[in-house]
Amino acid sequence: MLEGKVKWFNSEKGFGFIEVEGQDDVFVHFSAIQGEGFKTLEEGQAVSFEIVEGNRGPQAANVTKEA
């Protein structure tokens, strides 16, 4: 699992990017966010995740919000 911070997330469109120190930003789709209820992320929020190869390159999977 990697750790990063949410760079930005558009809850209307359901996607955004996660910043990872020393690496390129990683695309995140709302469907990759773990948990119940409305799936969104806040700018600057700490998250842990895995990287998988998507249709358009690397993207986040199994995203969990850090306490």
Rank of each mutant, 00 (worst) to 15 (best):
M1C: 05
L2C: 04
L2F: 13
E3T: 15
E3G: 13
K5L: 05
V6E: 00
V6C: 04
V6F: 01
V6A: 03
K7W: 03
W8T: 03
W8Y: 08
F9E: 00
F9V: 03
F9K: 02
F9P: 00
F9D: 00
F9M: 03
N10W: 09
N10T: 07
S11N: 12
S11Q: 13
S11F: 13
E12Y: 15
K13R: 13
K13G: 05
K13M: 10
G14D: 01
F15K: 02
F15M: 10
F15H: 09
G16A: 01
G16Y: 01
F17H: 04
I18A: 02
I18H: 00
E19L: 14
E21M: 14
E21T: 15
E21K: 15
E21A: 13
D24V: 13
D25F: 05
D25N: 10
V26E: 01
F27E: 02
V28Y: 03
H29D: 03
H29I: 05
F30I: 05
F30S: 06
F30L: 04
F30T: 04
S31V: 04
S31A: 09
S31H: 12
A32P: 01
Q34F: 11
Q34P: 07
Q34C: 05
G35E: 11
G35Q: 11
G35A: 10
E36D: 12
E36F: 08
G37Q: 07
K39D: 04
K39G: 06
T40A: 10
T40K: 09
T40F: 12
T40S: 12
L41T: 03
E42Y: 13
E42L: 12
E42T: 13
G44W: 07
G44T: 05
G44Q: 07
Q45R: 07
Q45K: 06
A46L: 12
A46Y: 15
S48L: 12
S48I: 11
F49I: 04
I51P: 03
I51D: 01
I51N: 03
V52N: 05
V52R: 11
V52F: 10
E53C: 06
E53L: 13
E53M: 15
G54S: 12
G54M: 09
G54I: 07
G54C: 04
G54N: 08
G54R: 08
N55L: 14
N55M: 13
N55R: 13
R56L: 15
R56V: 08
G57T: 04
G57R: 09
P58K: 12
Q59T: 09
Q59S: 07
Q59G: 04
Q59D: 02
A60W: 01
A60F: 01
A61F: 11
N62K: 14
V63G: 01
V63Q: 00
K65F: 12
K65L: 14
K65I: 14
E66K: 15
A67M: 10
A67L: 11
A67S: 12
